[in-house]
Design a protein around this nucleic acid. Structure first.
Lengths: 235, 235
DNA sequence: ACAATAGTGTCTTTTAGACAGTATTTG
DNA sequence: CAAATACTGTCTAAAAGACACTATTGT
């Protein structure tokens, strides 16, 4: 490869930050205050600085956009989007990331963002009407990010990153229900989670019953296992 | 995000091009003729041009490096490597890709490359001695690429991209043997492949017996299925 | 007691693991 | 015929699917 004539690019990170809110998978979007796409909604993101790699930039943006000092969840690279015309201002290559976390506080609007809020993902992607218009290629990024999360719940223990410790199995099951859109069978779900070594580790405590009554659930913490084999299957 | 002060990056693609040669998984490497890492071996790659995205750049490099007009296999993005010091000359972000193909001709050395040849992947990554030294972070890229291929053979029909049509089931089984390092059980392998709708489609022809004799195998073509569910498992 | 939620047990079906056997070719 | 390779069948074990049942809480 030649060391000459490599055109300059800007390199950015974009983040699909997911959480579970009110039993649904939600994503953090910011309303753009400037052209292009002023008034549209976008995934939070920013440029990679000279002394950091894409992952460090993503962690930094994660703290800035959520207003949390130490982000409590999981972050991983999704893929890179590099269509020449994806940003009309200039050539920007974006290294998209997926982040998961237990319920986070309402976000702070950033300096360039008119507003920032959680959206129900299915309302953004699947709604016939009323969904926000997403800027740039962020609709595609969000589609890919949702599919990544759906797939990873099958063969990893990632679902535990959506709940704060300690947690109950019904809580964990609600994560699957929210992400997959349909609840896994109760008994089979418990059998799979408890039968997978290191998925969850029991505590000797139990949670509280709701106002309406009902048996309090046992509390668990995340186990050391990262994969589930054979995978849990979506029907 | 600010539209000001985004430092210039070069954006490159690097390719882990895999094929099966003599029953082993092989990867194409080029010997570097220039500093840095002159004399080391590297994954083929090049810079992304102003009017193309990373995938187009990867297809272009694929044709250039293999010397093939229409590359016959599969290409997908792996992940992006962006450590600030990964290239000592300047800031280069690399969008790595994985390519698979049936046996390709011996490669042509490119303009900057002193030499180019196929290497057995395990000799490059696992050998205690004698393995080539890989330039930049290409050892890590190759490790990630091999793991991607190993994993994808489990839950996709990608193995068929390693053989040319028409092919036999014993040929296809040798692909799994090469990639996983251990042969899947004969009967169970056939049951799984033939029992997965659209994995392979039979032809009415059969192949030729070897010189040493033996029953000729039936010939198949790739089917429309892209995923295998439940997955084929490595023991 | 009843509603609500958590948790257990069990029967059936599907699939993988292991491995023995049969079939068809060349020399 | 033997050697070599391709292919089939079968028994067992593991796991998932479906679904009924028991347990513990609040009002």
């Amino acid at each position: 490869m030649s060391t000459h004539e490599h055109p300059p690019f800007a390199v950015a990170v974009d983040l699909a930050i997911f959480t579970i809110r009110d039993g649904a998978l939600a994503v953090l979007l910011v309303e753009r205050g400037e052209e292009p796409f002023a008034g549209s909604w976008a995934l939070p993101g920013g440029f990679v600085e000279p002394d950091e790699d894409a992952e460090q930039a993503a962690w930094r943006e994660l703290r800035e956009e959520t207003g949390v000092e130490r982000f409590p969840g999981h972050l991983e690279q999704l893929r890179t989007y590099s269509a020449p015309d994806r940003d009309p201002r200039m050539r920007v290559v974006s290294v998209a990331h997926v982040a998961l976390a237990p319920d986070l506080p309402e976000p702070q609007a950033g300096t360039d963002a008119a507003d920032a809020r959680w959206w129900v993902v299915d309302d953004v992607l699947d709604a016939e009407v009323d969904g926000p218009v997403l800027a740039f290629d962020h609709r595609q990024i969000l589609l890919d990010a949702r599919e990544r999360v759906r797939a990873k719940l099958e063969y990893t223990t990632l679902a535990t990153e959506f709940v704060s410790e300690p947690f109950t199995l019904p809580e964990l099951r609600r994560v699957y229900t929210a992400v997959w859109g349909t609840p896994p069978d109760l008994g089979n779900f418990r059998r799979k989670v408890l039968g997978t070594d290191g998925f969850v580790v029991p505590t000797d405590a139990r949670g509280e019953a709701t106002e309406a009554g009902g048996r309090p659930a046992l509390l668990y913490r995340r186990g050391p296992a990262r994969t589930v084999q054979p995978p849990m299957v979506r029907s």
